[in-house]
Design a protein around this nucleic acid. Structure first.
Length: 279
DNA sequence: ATCCAGGAACTGT
DNA sequence: ACAGTTCATGGA
């Protein structure tokens, strides 16, 4: 992690393959997002560090990420945690040099890599959030997935108010572990999804499932341990490894969004199938 | 109305 | 192992 603490703000120095604007476009893709807001070229996000709620304004000035604290400046220890969180949020440990070398030789990726240079995977550092968000998104359209997330967060999450706006935190697994299926059915979760999510919350509450344990495992071990959990199939396991566990081998190949992207890119009449051969 | 959506579990062979 | 069915609801 490459950063400087200026007490009232942080400066984080990203690697050279980084484009804040492209990342911001991704973060702003849905106007139903409740876990961050974008204003004046900066991301406003509420973070919880050891029971304290920290509102962060994440901007970009002079080739570095500038993190400010609109409400109050936290202690040095908390600032360090905030810096680590944001480093992880933008996936800045990843060295993309090799990827871009590979992409420049790839017929399909070449133009994309150039067009979106510096866009990184926007991570979901909280394992519970990553798992729940993936499960919410199973087999439904994205706008409805965001609707479910909004209801879930506003029903069970914490918030603070700043300048008349609410900034929300994703609900904790402790809280969700104590719910029953009907609590989530009221928000129009299916019975299955409600069971999956509460089950995962309970696994995390009893310490059976933690990010630390998963981070010690390699790609196949993580995939196996995640898929043992009810509600997690190959797609969800790969999605979570990609968005939360920084597993560069993960690739949700069955993802409908990827299929549609390929169809658009290659001007195919139909979506490519899993065994589609690219000419 | 009909089909699909950032799938997964369940059932039957 | 593998294919077919069910879950459930919003959006186009």
């Amino acid at each position: 992690m490459n950063w400087i603490d200026h007490e009232s703000y942080l400066e984080i120095y990203p690697p050279k393959e980084f484009n804040f604007e492209e990342c911001l476009i991704f973060l702003g893709r849905s106007n139903q997002e409740v876990l961050h807001q974008i204003k004046d070229g900066a991301v406003y996000k509420l973070i919880k560090i050891k029971d304290s709620l920290i509102l962060c304004k994440i901007g970009y000035i002079n080739n570095c990420i500038k993190v400010e604290f609109p409400i109050r400046t936290p202690s040095i220890l908390v600032r360090k945690k905030v810096g680590e969180y944001i480093w992880e949020l933008f996936d800045l440990d990843q060295d993309l040099g090799e990827f871009y070398q590979m992409a420049s030789r790839d017929k399909i990726l070449k133009n994309l890599a150039h067009k979106y240079f510096g866009l990184r995977i926007m991570c979901i550092p909280d394992l519970f959030e990553a798992l729940v968000w993936a499960i919410m998104g199973q087999q439904i359209n994205l706008p409805f997935a965001y609707t479910l997330k909004q209801r879930f967060v506003e029903q069970f999450g914490e918030f603070i108010t700043f300048e008349g706006e609410r900034f929300w935190l994703f609900p904790s697994f402790e809280k969700i572990a104590s719910l029953n299926v009907d609590d989530l059915r009221k928000l129009q979760f299916t019975t299955r999804k409600a069971e999956y999510i509460i089950g995962i919350a309970k696994d995390m509450k009893c310490g059976k499932l933690t990010k630390e344990l998963l981070l010690q495992q390699d790609y196949h071990q993580v995939q196996t341990s995640l898929m043992l959990i009810r509600g997690i199939g190959a797609w969800t396991a790969d999605y979570v490894m990609m968005k939360c566990l920084h597993q560069t081998s993960s690739f949700p190949i069955a993802d409908v969004g990827l299929h549609n992207a390929l169809r658009n890119l290659l001007s195919l009449k139909e979506k490519p199938t899993m065994n589609h051969q690219l000419a």
